[in-house]
């Protein structure tokens, strides 16, 4: 009987420790994403994308994020190259329904509304999923602390993130001193590394309640060999967000 009581106590204490660990891991990850300035900002970016054979494309774009009640909007405007200059994309993310993408194509002067699977959406011409910039953490995600490690001379905590919808998992690297998200590795069901997103050169975004944004984002799809190298030239906090700025207007009927 004594043995059973000891065993029960041990099991309970292990379970509690594990549950605490999960909570702590989730908290640390949430801290790292909450520190990111992902609302009401405007970024000016230089983007280099590479296909699996090393071919390169360069683009200039601006990305603006805004929150209007339950609606989260992202506006992307392409500034270069010439043939796509002026193309604007607005994605609207609703908490309870399928999102809509509106696209203004200067070539036709029309605004096209597109309904597509949000999960597939990527920032135009990149390997960067629009989802990557979501700050909200799904409550069904499971978080587990892994070992601590050094990443690019920064001491990091590794956190395993398991989504109930995905068969693989992700490992996030969060710097221990600044609690900044440094990298996310994506693994397939067999535990093979299939993608890496690296965030570096964090800068504080002015007037944003001590929020930060990485100046360099590198996304690599290890399976296809494609990668996107995003350099943030400018980050501005949008103090007065106007919903009209996120409405696209056709120039032709």
């Amino acid at each position: 009987m004594k043995k059973i009581i000891i065993l029960l106590c041990l099991t309970f204490s292990l379970f509690s420790a594990s549950a605490t660990d999960t909570m702590e891991a989730k908290k640390l990850f949430e801290h790292s994403t909450q520190k990111l300035s992902l609302q009401n900002i405007r970024l000016v970016l230089d983007l280099e994308t590479f296909d699996g054979k090393g071919n390169c494309k360069t683009k200039e774009l601006t990305v603006s994020y805004a929150q209007f009640d339950d609606e989260r909007k992202v506006l992307i405007e392409l500034l270069a190259p010439e043939n796509v200059m002026g193309t604007k994309i607005v994605t609207t993310d609703y908490p309870d329904k399928k999102g809509i993408i509106e696209i203004y194509m200067p070539a036709t002067g029309r605004v096209q509304k597109i309904r597509a699977n949000q999960r597939n959406l990527k920032i135009i011409g990149t390997e960067i999923p629009i989802e990557q910039f979501k700050s909200a953490i799904d409550k069904d995600f499971e978080f587990t602390f892994l070992e601590k490690t050094d990443l690019n001379d920064t001491h990091c905590q590794k956190i395993k993130i398991q989504s109930p919808e995905e068969k693989g998992y992700r490992i996030a690297f969060v710097s221990i001193d600044k609690e900044q998200l440094m990298s996310i590795e994506q693994y397939d069901i067999k535990g093979k590394l299939v993608g890496v997103t690296e965030f570096s050169n964090y800068i504080e975004v002015a007037n944003s309640n001590a929020k930060f944004f990485p100046q360099m984002i590198l996304v690599k799809n290890l399976k296809s060999g494609k990668s996107s190298d995003l350099k943030v030239r400018q980050v501005n906090h949008l103090s007065q967000v106007n919903s009209d700025d996120f409405i696209l207007t056709p120039t032709q009927s």
Partner: peptide
């Protein structure tokens, strides 16, 4: 040409670049 390129960029954004890559190259 601009319309073609803009259409392709949009389709790519939808995650369907593999379909395009079969017959139009990256650049």
């Amino acid at each position: 040409k601009a319309e073609a390129e803009q259409s392709l960029e949009i389709f790519t954004m939808g995650g369907y670049e593999d379909q395009i890559a079969q017959f139009i190259d990256y650049n």
